[in-house]
Design a protein around this nucleic acid. Structure first.
Lengths: 205, 205, 205, 205
DNA sequence: GATGAATGAGCGTTCATTCAT
DNA sequence: CATGAATGAACGCTCATTCAT
């Protein structure tokens, strides 16, 4: 009880104990700059300044620049994951599942323009030549593979495909149409409609 | 003997006084390093050293590092183009066309591992925030759109698709399966087979 | 003892954490090196090292080398200006004015040997071919022109001269005798005496 | 006789034996570029190209860049010297001597714009910190000192001046008015008139 | 004599990171 | 917890000079 009271007081009167606030500011700033300028053109100093903090504060929250970028990628992945989870169809047929998931990705992209593109900056780019983990895109491809596998097991999808391979193919198609769509400002509806029909037809049993 | 010795020495130690030779060496070295380490981790100096030349020689052939990278991309694009042109099917049905082109891309990738991935390092990456032209991937997507358009007009492909959108989707599927395939060393045959069936089924009238 | 030792260490080894101090050190170092070696033979790195600072610190205080040089020139100009202002004669006759101003320039030169010569390294020199403002020397020539104009209007100087032209002539005479005097270590008194008589005679009504 | 014939033949038929021609081309090119761009912005390569020769040829004629610049300075000095010698007054009174010499300098400047300014780029500028000889300006100051000395000995000039000091003062006045005159495009006649009267009045016995 | 490709020390500048305050 | 001045290795690039042809 005492503690709670103290904390409240602290929040309102003392300037100290702000760590979580600072981290949140840094995250917002980092996302903004990584999206606007990309990894290499964003300096830790820029992020701190954009967050309204001192340069050194950056290193209180991240061991280095790469960790900050990786955290940004992770946040974006998690965010998209939640976004999609919240938009799963009640009747999971092949068509409704694909349509719902595609729509979710496109809507997320529209709501957070540039975030996915920035987050997918391949880890190869930020790693001199280090051993890198499975890239984000490939992991998402596996997620689509899982969707295909489930559809196969429930008889909604053609079973002659290797779901992992097809999952990567689907993810690739989505990624490319999404990024080209963003470039050309082509109508989102049209892209979604074409892509949904294309994938459904390819997967149907 | 004396003469032979002299010639050998000349051949092996002479710093190669002809410009075209040096450019070829630089090109080979640049491709090797851009593929192995990526754009940002490759310094002009590294390229020159790899080519067995002095640092300054690099700038005799390229105005700057970016120009060298762009030349590498261009060469790769041209090379792949020739490669595919030479492998077009005699009977251009939808299936044979897709199969042939897929096979060509995969074979090129197998023969020149990493080159396409490096060449596709989005031009965005190397341009702080400059005005960039249509990226390589999108241009290739247009090429696939053209293939689809032709197949539609000859009755080999379903006409309800917008060929440009579907072209980007196909290119994306190829790109992603190819790069994932390279990562996981999954059997090339299997990937090709799955992808061909997938695309043919999606496109059939 | 312990404390004293600690303080000493602190005073002598601490890398001086305050910005103004560093700037002052850089200014002193820059002046020293620009005077000793000239603009082109002085590297930012040399200035920083002479100031006992890291290379990067230079760029915390100046956007580039040229800005540092221009700041040096400006400081020298301001310094000389103050110096002369403090030595104006109480009775401003032509002779006393010329004598006082000449003396001031010579004394400043003697006290800060080489500074004026370095500061006058024409701005043309440091600007590949940029648009340059009126050079320092010409501006000082205008100042002398003003002195002449005033002397004319108070009847102390011959009115048949264009004061601007004669101002430049006087400044040139001073500059050249001063730099030659510094070279040959000719007696300052003698130069001053000759020059004063020369100018007074030329200007008298 | 034979020799002369041979040389003529050589000049007209063989491409070899062109050294003097190349040197002349280089001299013209060097003067043009040193005047236009200054010492530091002119590369030996630029001079050779301007002369229509290979880069290496430069080093057949000059040991290094500095030597080329010094040769340019020397040529300009010699040229001005001849120019002035050819314009000495027949009746060498103080006034006519000063007027004639001033006129000569100004005319030379007008005929060869920028040459004197470029040639006077102090040797300090081109010498890291080497021991430099008496600069051009000072040597010209001595020349004027000599003129004053002669005028004194023939009773045309006031003898209470130290001719060396006054010589430097005169040279300085000329130099400064000339360079300011070139900048402001002030009328040459007016500058000459003012300066002549100024110097004559100062020197008269 | 003439050439120009080759060289590499050296330049001005940047930026991820540290640490005294 | 927060700061920002300080750091110096490393970058992309230039240019006076050499030398095989």
């Amino acid at each position: 009880m005492d503690q709670e009271a103290l904390e409240k007081t602290a929040d309102e009167t003392r300037p100290a104990r702000r760590k979580p606030e600072s981290l949140a500011k840094l995250k917002r700033a980092a996302r903004k700059l990584f999206v606007e300028r990309g990894y290499h053109a964003t300096r830790p100093q820029d992020i701190a300044r954009e967050a309204g903090l001192g340069h050194g504060t950056f290193y209180l929250h991240y061991p280095d620049k790469k960790a900050c970028f990786l955290a940004f990628v992770d946040d974006a992945r998690e965010e998209l994951h939640e976004y999609m989870k919240a938009r799963q169809p009640s009747q999971p047929t092949l068509e409704s599942t694909i349509a719902a998931n595609l729509k979710a990705v496109y809507e997320y992209s529209a709501e957070h323009p540039g975030v996915l593109a920035a987050a997918m900056t391949d880890e190869i780019i930020i790693d001199a030549e280090g051993a890198q983990a499975t890239p984000l895109l490939v992991r998402w491809g596996f997620d689509w593979g899982e969707i295909v596998r489930i559809a196969q097991s429930t008889g909604h999808a053609c079973t002659t495909y290797n779901p992992e391979i097809v999952g990567q193919a689907i993810l690739g198609a989505i990624h490319q149409t999404a990024s080209e769509g963003a470039r050309s400002l082509r109508g989102r509806e049209e892209v979604l409609d074409n892509l949904t029909r294309f994938l459904v037809k390819a997967l149907k049993p």
